[in-house]
């Protein structure tokens, strides 16, 4: 069982989606995350174990490599694709209750900003770590974030920005959410923000990279 889970983790880490996927070249012609996940389920390995000891492990490894600049966005996208393809086999078991999401994470790029690459990476990494993600998109007004928090109690909120001037939107959103829902944990990320800015606006966490966001919310869910 452990060997199969390790293989699944390896496929996700290196972005091996399925048998027909030519990437990575040294795994060409081999089974990928999709087939191995199906095989693991057929062998009776609990879906929870496949998720936690296989798929999520692979995503965590690629997240750490991305943080260290050992890999770049395309490789993370391949890993996320391998993860999501494998999840097609696992998702039906969410409905039966055999697998549960760790919680809900709401994410969006703040109003006045259309940059979505960072937001999408965080979204994929968090979904790949067993969370339900509500992606509000880009150029999201404060009221929309608040509405999403009301609809998803006990969720985490992630705010993304690339433009320096849209950082002020983050402050408005944090203030609006904390006024009605002070218990909601809010993470911020993006090139212009930092730990000092997080403290200044009263957010709960500054994530310098996607894996940082994953580790923070996972710690809260534990």
């Amino acid at each position: 069982m452990e060997s199969l889970l390790n293989e699944i983790a390896h496929c996700v880490e290196f972005g091996k989606i399925d048998l027909k996927s030519p990437y990575p070249p040294d795994m060409k012609g081999k089974e990928g995350a999709a087939e191995l996940t199906k095989k693991a389920l057929d062998e009776g390995i609990p879906a929870k174990d496949i998720l936690e000891k296989g798929l999520i492990v692979g995503m965590a490894k690629i997240g750490i490599k991305f943080r260290a600049n050992e890999v770049f966005v395309p490789q993370v996208l391949m890993s996320a694709k391998a993860m999501s393809t494998a999840m097609e086999h696992i998702k039906p078991l969410f409905i039966t209750g055999a697998v549960k999401a760790k919680g809900t994470f709401i994410i969006g790029t703040v109003a006045g900003d259309l940059h979505d690459i960072g937001k999408n990476l965080v979204s994929m990494m968090i979904e790949g770590n067993g969370w339900n993600v509500v992606d509000l998109g880009v150029d999201v007004k404060p009221e929309k974030f608040l509405e999403a928090v009301k609809e998803n109690p006990n969720s985490y909120v992630g705010l993304s920005a690339l433009l320096t001037t849209t950082m002020v939107q983050m402050e408005k959103i944090v203030s609006l959410i904390k006024e009605d829902h002070p218990e909601t944990k809010i993470l911020i990320g993006g090139a212009p923000v930092n730990e000092n800015f997080k403290n200044k606006i009263g957010a709960d966490f500054y994530a310098p990279d996607p894996q940082g966001a994953v580790e923070y919310i996972n710690a809260g869910a534990a």
Binding site: G112, D113, L163, T164, T165, T166
Partner: peptide
């Protein structure tokens, strides 16, 4: 450009 170097996008 507005949006960069602290120039308001507005």
């Amino acid at each position: 450009s507005p949006g960069y170097c602290d120039w308001s996008v507005a």
